[in-house]
Design a protein around this nucleic acid. Structure first.
Lengths: 131, 131
DNA sequence: AGTCCTGCTGAGAACTGTTGTCAAAAACCG
DNA sequence: CGGTTTTTGACAACAGTTCTCAGCAGGACT
């Protein structure tokens, strides 16, 4: 049976409050700074659970896993500011179709795809324009 | 100054001969089995060099980096069999346009994107059909 | 060809992100 | 409340990758 602990809630909340993708370790130290006594392993476990239940998305960047709360159930992709981490969920229907089609053309089945767009958001572009 | 050592050549060759994406460690042990005395660190260094010079593509899967020789200079994406690792280079012009457009719509600039399609190739689908 | 300099190599240690272990704690059931 | 059973948290273990550093060797120059 699956139990409902305050730790899991804490992770879910912390994830929901963050602007963009966060690493497990950042989340853990953030919670610790708020006085929580949650353990690192627990954060990893909670994140893995959330991700497998579709309540969070994950992506790999520079060898570490980043997580983000997302609208459950809906398939979507992300547009991520590589400077501040701001994330926008985007629909990608044309890409879905394209991926299926390309896979089929080459005899591939059970196609899945990884699609993420990185860029610099308007705010960061303006702030960094002088650089 | 950049030097041309037999180790770098060995890595380049081994990469070119492999069917799909290979991990640095697999490449290293493969070379070792062929009697080479190349070191693991050197393989990592050579792969990083090749990737940064555009002679190899890399992707992250399950926490490890995989590499593959690719046609230098051309921008393309990959269709990868998640069973045997077979890789097909694919053109994705519609996706390129889509990515630029979506980024622009949200005020993002300097858009880059990660697009990879995973599936099961015809051969593996046939072999695993009985499973 | 010989010499020198400097970047490259290889072995292993060190590091980083993640997962496993296990006793103790706490959530759920009645 | 008492019993059962999952979950937790501290820490060890692990895997992949990078760092370190003494010695080696590629290439330029002679």
């Amino acid at each position: 049976m699956k139990r409902n602990t305050w730790q899991r809630e804490a992770v879910r909340n912390a994830l929901g409050e963050s602007e963009g993708f966060v690493s497990a370790q950042a989340l853990h130290s953030g919670l610790r700074e708020q006085g929580s006594s949650i353990g690192l392993a627990t954060v990893y476990r909670a994140l893995a659970d959330l991700a497998s239940e579709g309540e969070a998305d994950s992506l790999q960047q520079e060898g570490e896993a980043l997580y983000r709360a997302c609208t459950p159930g809906s398939h979507h992709h992300h547009l991520i500011c590589r400077n501040c981490g701001l994330t926008v969920e985007i629909e990608a229907d044309p890409v879905e179709l394209w991926a299926q089609q390309v896979a089929a053309e080459h005899g591939f089945t059970q196609a899945e795809h990884v699609v993420d767009v990185f860029g610099v958001c308007a705010k960061c572009a303006a702030a960094g324009a002088t650089r």
